[in-house]
Amino acid sequence: MEYRVLIVIYKARRFKFYILGLLSERVRWITNLTHSPNNVRSPVYLNGILHWMVNDKSYKHANGDNPGCSSSIMLFNTTSEEFSTIPHPGDECGLRKKHDMMELMDMEGNLSLCDSRSFRYLDIWMLEDYENWFWGKRHSIEIEPLLEFCGIQYRYGSHVNLGGFYMYNKELLLKVCDNDLILYNQQTGSIRRVGKQMRKDMRVVAVPHINTLFIDIF
């Protein structure tokens, strides 16, 4: 019956992980790692495990190079308090890593990954075999209609910021250029806006309502 906080501290080119018990006020060291979770989004919590994308920038700052694609997803078992890593689905990134263009989400109670590295398609993968880490591609959504709906001229080869992916009533909720939230129906291909499009100097954020609390503090 203890509330626990996972803490990461960067020191001496290592990321030191601790557990803080809020009731006991005790701090326990867990492990040191060469990498840390991406702190832009909260983790996906499934099957007693927290899932994050690896933080490319902090890894490069600590190690001088980019993390490999084979260890691009971090896992933390909340029972055993052990970390592990798995590779992301799809093609490897090459020399220039693009893990910041991938986001994890919960889709139908399964770990899923949205990959926006392509200039033409948004690929959605689902982890179909948790034991053997087998991913299956579920959707490949053309990006051009999404941008045109938001009033953005599509240019092949130019990256437009897509992110903030969630499943909402079987529709994909995503953020375009930080100031527009849209819902995409993967069955019909229809697109509709959530609220109204903000000015370019404003940002919108979608926050899912869940019954478990995780807090990111920076």
Rank of each mutant, 00 (worst) to 15 (best):
I86Y: 01
Y154D: 00
S80G: 05
I73V: 13
L46G: 13
C69Q: 00
P87E: 03
N110M: 14
I49Y: 01
E81Y: 11
S58C: 10
M105L: 15
E131I: 14
S112F: 10
Y45T: 04
P87A: 00
D100Q: 06
W133Y: 14
E142R: 04
N38D: 15
E144S: 09
Y59I: 03
M105G: 05
G48L: 12
N77C: 02
R41D: 13
L111Q: 02
I143K: 11
T78Q: 07
E131R: 08
P43Q: 01
S80H: 04
D100H: 05
H61K: 11
D100I: 06
S116L: 08
H88E: 13
L75N: 04
E108G: 01
N55Q: 00
L146P: 12
D106R: 00
T85G: 07
Y154V: 05
S84R: 06
N132F: 12
D123W: 01
N132Y: 08
E108I: 12
V160W: 09
S70C: 07
K97Q: 15
R138D: 15
I143V: 05
R117Y: 06
T79E: 14
Y121K: 10
N55D: 11
M74G: 07
L127H: 05
S116M: 05
G163Y: 06
S71I: 07
L122V: 01
E81H: 02
C114T: 04
I143Q: 04
V54D: 01
P43W: 13
V40G: 05
L50V: 09
D91R: 09
M102Y: 03
Y45L: 15
P89V: 11
H88L: 10
G64W: 07
R155E: 15
K137R: 09
C93A: 08
F119R: 00
I124H: 00
P43R: 04
E128L: 12
L111W: 09
F134W: 12
N47K: 06
N47C: 15
K137H: 02
R96M: 13
R96Q: 09
D129A: 06
S158W: 15
S72N: 02
M102Q: 08
F149K: 10
K137S: 06
H88M: 11
L146S: 01
I49H: 05
T79F: 14
M53L: 13
R120D: 11
W135S: 07
D100S: 11
E81K: 00
N47D: 10
H99A: 09
N66T: 03
R96A: 09
E128Q: 13
Y130W: 14
L104S: 02
I143Y: 05
C69T: 00
Y45W: 08
L162G: 03
P43N: 12
E131F: 12
N66W: 13
I124G: 09
K60R: 08
H51S: 06
D106Q: 02
G163S: 08
V44T: 13
D65H: 08
N38Y: 05
G163A: 09
L50Y: 15
W135G: 03
K97F: 06
L75D: 00
I141Q: 08
M101R: 10
H88W: 06
R120C: 08
R155P: 08
M102W: 03
I141W: 13
R96D: 11
S72Q: 02
M105T: 10
